[in-house]
Design a protein around this nucleic acid. Structure first.
Length: 203
DNA sequence: TGCATGATGTTCT
DNA sequence: GAACATCATGCAC
């Protein structure tokens, strides 16, 4: 498979909502002990750090949210609800705590490996549909927090993928949060079967 | 087909 | 001690 170039750090050093939009169609790849899994991003959410009540960084820097205050182009992997991991990419220049949550994707490489990391019987459209599922497919955990995604030397990398036309991007309110619920910072590719909640809500 | 609910641990009040 | 950027299951309709 032909691969795009790694996204430069400057790509991430922009407002989170812009990065979230441009991340659609890009490919996240992760090396693991068992091989490589790559996912094409189809759904993202922007979190604008200290200005955003829904962000983990809203109340300032904490041990958990510390990575978000660091340089852009790094992973922010956090554990929530006692059982799920979620993958974010740090945005905006160092000192500004913004991030983009990767909500859903399509597994484009290492499908069998990704499936083996999920509950038996889970198959394609659902494989990486949802933040926790996406992280599970990629085999992410606490050891994957704070990694640089702009260098080939890293276990976790992000490549430029197919460009997504504005016509194919749908913007809507974020999901699964209780504050700032009406801020339209959720981006997804229209009609893509891999987005989260595809069967439940369709707005 | 769709909603309500339980599992489970880290973080912050 | 409560909240939480969730998911899968089970039961109702």
């Amino acid at each position: 498979m032909r691969r795009g170039a790694l996204l430069p750090r400057g790509f991430y050093a922009r407002p989170a909502d812009v990065v979230a939009r441009d991340l659609l169609g890009c490919v996240v790849e992760v090396d693991g002990p068992d091989g490589l899994v790559a996912v094409r991003v189809v759904e993202t959410e922007a979190y604008a750090g200290e200005d955003d009540p829904a962000s983990h960084a809203w109340r300032g820097r904490t041990p958990r949210s510390g990575v978000m205050f660091g340089p852009p182009g790094h992973t922010y992997v956090y554990f929530s609800y006692g059982m799920h991991w979620a993958l974010n990419l740090v945005c905006e220049p160092e000192g500004r705590a913004a991030a983009v949550l990767l909500r859903a994707g399509e597994v484009v490489e290492g499908v069998e490996l990704a499936a083996s990391r999920r509950r038996p019987g889970t198959a394609m459209p659902r494989l990486a549909s949802g933040p926790a599922n996406l992280a599970a497919c990629l085999g992410l955990d606490a050891a994957s927090n704070g990694l640089d995604v702009t260098t080939t030397a890293s276990r976790v990398r992000v490549r430029r993928g197919s460009t997504t036309r504005d016509d194919d991007v749908r913007v809507g309110p974020r999901i699964g949060i209780s504050r700032a619920v009406d801020v339209p910072w959720r981006f997804r590719i229209v009609g893509d079967a891999h987005v989260s909640g595809a069967g439940r809500l369709n707005s």
